[in-house]
């Protein structure tokens, strides 16, 4: 095999980019699962909604309000996108998920699966499945850095750095702040936490907001890289599930590290044996399950 190191390194960088998204999404899934015991199947749909919030805000908002010059800039979308998506999440949690905490956890998965189909179906009806480009990429992030072995687009580097910063921010929030200690207490033992006068239902809503907003943020950041399409989330969510199974749901740091590592692996495999790139993460998952059923960073329940 004669594959230049340069090709490997550049694919590795692109893989790292995907890995940053895996990390952001699996982090949100893990946070929600920890607190609500719900595997949020709609996570991919919320990611898609985030991307569409950016797209609609940039291309359609002005047309809708009758003033073509009115646009939601990328930087505004970075803040507003997650807020909009998070608010939808709050509605979902308050009106539906809340009723399911007392029944089998599988129903949470089924409910969010149904929601994912609804979101996907509605957007498929109005937008092209093959996707639309997002034109709002800020000028300052145009162009590429010369990394020596390749020209790496500035925007992709920005996406990696931002995702990592947010991941560590969430880690800090949960592991090092008072609110985080409430969240962890609520995860560990909701009844006792409640007895201490902490509003656990409120915490659950907040957690769902946070997790879903992370998915929305990932969507906004992804919009300038991948084309924005109604199906962009559903393909991704299954990979993220596998990432979460590999890392084990228990650990936040585990979710971040596994996400990045698997993105990297996927990128490298793409160079050596392209047909395997789609499935390598699932194969790794099967191997990890045989070796350590609780996942790499998980504790056996």
């Amino acid at each position: 095999m004669d594959i230049p190191l340069q090709a490997v390194l550049s694919q590795a960088m692109l893989g790292l980019n995907n890995g940053a998204f895996y990390a952001l999404l699996s982090l949100g899934l893990a946070v929600i699962f920890g607190m609500l015991n719900v595997v949020n199947f709609a996570h991919g749909a919320f990611y898609m909604l985030g991307a569409f919030a950016a797209l609609l805000g940039f291309d359609y908002l002005g047309r809708f309000l009758g003033d073509e010059s009115l646009r939601m800039s990328f930087w505004a979308a970075l803040i507003l996108g997650p807020l909009i998506v998070g608010s939808i999440g709050v509605v979902v949690e308050k009106t539906m998920l809340q009723r399911l905490y007392k029944v089998d956890h599988l129903y949470g998965l089924l409910l969010t699966f149904g929601l994912a189909l609804i979101f996907e179906g509605v957007f498929t009806n109005y937008f092209n499945v093959s996707g639309e480009p997002y034109n709002g990429k800020p000028e300052i992030l145009e162009g590429a850095f010369d990394l020596g072995f390749m020209f790496f687009p500035k925007y992709r580097l920005f996406a990696i750095v931002l995702s990592l910063a947010v991941c560590f921010g969430v880690w800090y929030l949960i592991e090092r702040t008072r609110l985080g200690s409430y969240l962890r207490a609520g995860t560990e033992n909701p009844d006792v936490t409640r007895a201490f006068g902490i509003d656990v239902p409120m915490l659950r809503t907040l957690t769902y907001f946070l997790g879903v907003a992370l998915a929305g943020l990932a969507g906004v950041v992804a919009a300038p890289i991948y084309s924005v399409s109604p199906k962009m989330g559903s393909d991704l969510i299954i990979i993220v599930f596998a990432v979460v199974v590999i890392g084990g749901m228990g650990s936040i740091m585990g979710a971040i590290v596994t996400g990045l590592a698997l993105g990297l692996l996927e990128g490298v495999v793409k160079v050596f044996y392209p047909p395997l790139a789609n499935t390598v993460i699932f194969i790794v998952m099967a191997l990890v399950l045989l070796w350590r059923p609780a996942g790499l960073f998980g504790k056996e329940a």
Binding site: M96, R99, L100, Y107, L110, L111, F113, G114, L115, A116, L117, I118, F119, E120, G121, V122, T124, N125
Partner: peptide
């Protein structure tokens, strides 16, 4: 068309709830 997906999803939600 894709409203089928929406219908299926809605039935899912209704059944679960």
């Amino acid at each position: 068309g894709s409203w089928v997906t929406v219908t299926i999803g809605s039935i899912f939600v209704l059944c679960v709830l």
